[in-house]
Nucleic acid binder design. Structure first.
Lengths: 224, 224
DNA sequence: CTGTATCCATGGCGATACTG
DNA sequence: CAGTATCGCCATGGATACAG
């Protein structure tokens, strides 16, 4: 008895979607990941076996299609899967409004920098290569320094020094950068209270908040 | 490890909502059920122990509040819970569009008549008591005859003959009535192809399709 | 790079009965 | 009416290692 025994459309939807991890896989696909290891990077706590299993059931459900492109496995959403964007959106809006507190167990520097990378507003950056260094206080040494490199309309993030000249530096805690990215606190507030510090030439310091993107839900109004 | 270890708002939302049955409980509350046994009626395949457990965790999450009203346990949605209407809506729209086929295991005459009752467009009915009898072909005798009674701005459904004069009768299969209610097929089509038959005075026969309500998602456009 | 194969513990959840 | 109490299965999914 795996179903709900109901003909209600939302019950039928939940039969496809309510298993653990399922909608997070869909979210990753909506955000543009299409290869197995890209998906894994956005879902670091998910075992590969389970990811594989979920991709298979989403295929069976007609949400995902697997194709081979240039010999690489490529997953993408069918029209049916793309329409789950509305569901994912509604969940995100609800989550950001009512589930505001981020506990330590949810913090993850790799995940954060991966999200920062994919929300970089490229056109806000200067032409030519620009590198912003991040220093995360209180994070294990191997994950405390990051370099965000934007060049040729493309953003990359490294956890080893790429050796470029650093245009500016952001220093803060993992928690603060996460909350800024989520939109829980604003740059202005965080700069004022000293929980984040930017360094570099004055024009760079002024520009950095506009260079660092935010999550899609950052602008959602919060309940009073 | 019960959470996802992610700070993404939608992951946080799923931590609260992705367990089996959870969103169906919310759906019932959104539809207006507020007592334990009302909820059970809308969730017949859910064990009472599990319903109790889900209500408790939804309370802990701030989605539901339990109060005593005139000595009766009463569950209702907090503002946070009411906003899940958007999520439930998005899921229902997606479900009706892409999960169209209703299998036999999802058919349930009690559930259907309970849904028909609560979607009755009261103001479409005549003043004074009106009774429509339903005869469901191919359903066990104890659940094949139903009486929908509308009087004083209130609708009731009985599975035993209430003894009133019957204003009109609908005869069809459980599957057809379900698909009509969901909006998968229209009254006109079903009457034309004979899969449903209405009897009674000519004006009643003409009026019945307008008396029987449909699910909230019936009007959602289907993919080509 | 893209997965599979195994293994195991956990606990989710279904079924049923029962109680204030 | 509104839940508890118990029981036991089996499937879920986490961890790890490995393979084409």
């Amino acid at each position: 008895m795996t179903g709900y025994g109901q003909f209600c459309p939302m019950s039928k939807a939940m039969e496809v979607l309510d298993e653990r991890w399922t909608l997070l896989v869909v979210r990753e696909l909506l955000l543009g990941s299409c290869h197995f290891n890209d998906l894994r990077r956005g879902l670091p706590k998910m075992s590969p076996a389970l990811l594989s299993k979920r991709l298979k059931s989403l295929s069976r459900a007609g949400v995902v299609v697997r194709t081979e492109v240039d010999g690489r496995s490529t997953y993408s959403l069918t029209p049916c899967g793309q329409e789950l964007g509305e569901v994912v959106d509604a969940l995100g809006r609800w989550g950001i409004r009512w589930l505001g507190e981020v506990v330590d167990a949810d913090l993850d520097p790799h995940l954060l920098m991966w999200d920062v990378r994919r929300t970089v507003p490229i056109h806000e950056w200067p032409v030519g290569r620009t590198t912003v260094e991040f220093r995360l206080d209180g994070v294990a040494a191997t994950a405390s320094r990051w370099w965000l490199v934007v060049a040729d309309g493309h953003a990359d993030v490294c956890d080893v020094d790429p050796g470029h000249e650093v245009t500016g530096t952001v220093q803060t805690s993992l928690s603060t950068l996460t909350r800024i990215w989520r939109g829980d606190v604003g740059w202005a507030t965080a700069l004022r209270d000293g929980s984040v510090a930017v360094s570099g030439p004055v024009d760079v310091r002024a520009a950095i908040p506009g260079w660092i993107g935010q999550g899609a839900k950052a602008a959602v109004p919060r309940p009073a």
